[in-house]
Design a protein around this nucleic acid. Structure first.
Lengths: 143, 143
DNA sequence: TTCTTTTTGAGACGGGTTATCAATTTCAAC
DNA sequence: GTTGAAATTGATAACCCGTCTCAAAAAGAA
């Protein structure tokens, strides 16, 4: 009866294939994860502290990495931290990153996505997800 | 009489603007840096150990970060390490990565690059470089 | 319920990067 | 060239994020 039945199914299938178990923590973390577009382990730790004060940070890291293996999440190294992106979110967005001040602007561009599909199929690939980061100087840092 | 007169000039200009000083170490590190497309601090530490056994790792980090501020380098977080890219090097290529077998195919696409420029300027950014990775299944792994 | 296997939580640990600080170097003004 | 203020260096301690460890708890098949 969860809103995330589809993803829960993907997770359970992955667990079954690898002799892993379905736990209360994994369910809790998946539910929280799917509500956002991307999150860090630390952020999720604080978010979930209210629901389950004893949930450990290590469990969150382990579980988010599990989601990556199951294809539900995608890890991305941003500055010093790791962002876990929600792959099921359409409206996938990319990033403009200022190399001077660290400012990050999100954007979407359908034309680029279409060209990516073209490149992929030309090479026999089926895209699952992608990462596009543009590094440069924002208007304020250009001086 | 260095081959890197242009970049040395950029560095000196940056130093001048910020009341920083031109040192033997900074010159040494810039020369080594410009000879490669990208390098980690650790790699440079070992490379330069022969020329100057007393050159400290902290100095290398500080100097590479200085190069980033001067626009000569660009930091990229790759896994646990930081790659410092030589911005003056063009010849950039992107990657198709198979999530099943790990196969990597390199490609270039001018149309995508042009659209990137568009997105950037619309947001007031000047692109120094970018990273585009397409993750999916290659033809052999699609089954 | 029983038993084996996996998972969890708490904290120790590890690798990469930054901060600290006394000694040294730069460089502008004499 | 000397001098002196200000920046830099090198060694290492501290830091942060993420992983590992391991005993206790939970899952799930029989």
């Amino acid at each position: 009866m969860s809103k995330h039945a589809k993803e829960m199914g993907i997770l359970k299938e992955h667990l079954g294939k690898h002799q892993l178990k379905f736990t209360r923590q994994r369910e809790l973390i998946l539910d929280a994860f799917l509500k956002q577009e991307h999150i860090t382990a630390e952020e999720m730790y604080h978010q979930l502290a209210r629901k389950d004060p004893h949930l450990g940070l290590a469990t969150i890291y382990r579980t988010l990495n599990l989601f990556c293996e199951a294809g539900l999440a995608q890890a991305r190294h941003f500055g010093t931290q790791t962002q876990y992106d929600n792959v099921s979110h359409k409206g996938h967005h990319d990033h403009l990153i200022c190399t001077a001040c660290g400012k990050i602007v999100e954007f979407e561009n359908c034309d680029i996505e279409r060209l990516q599909e073209e490149v992929a199929s030309r090479n026999g690939f089926t895209i699952q997800t992608h990462r596009l980061e543009l590094y440069g100087l924002c208007s304020r840092c250009r001086h």
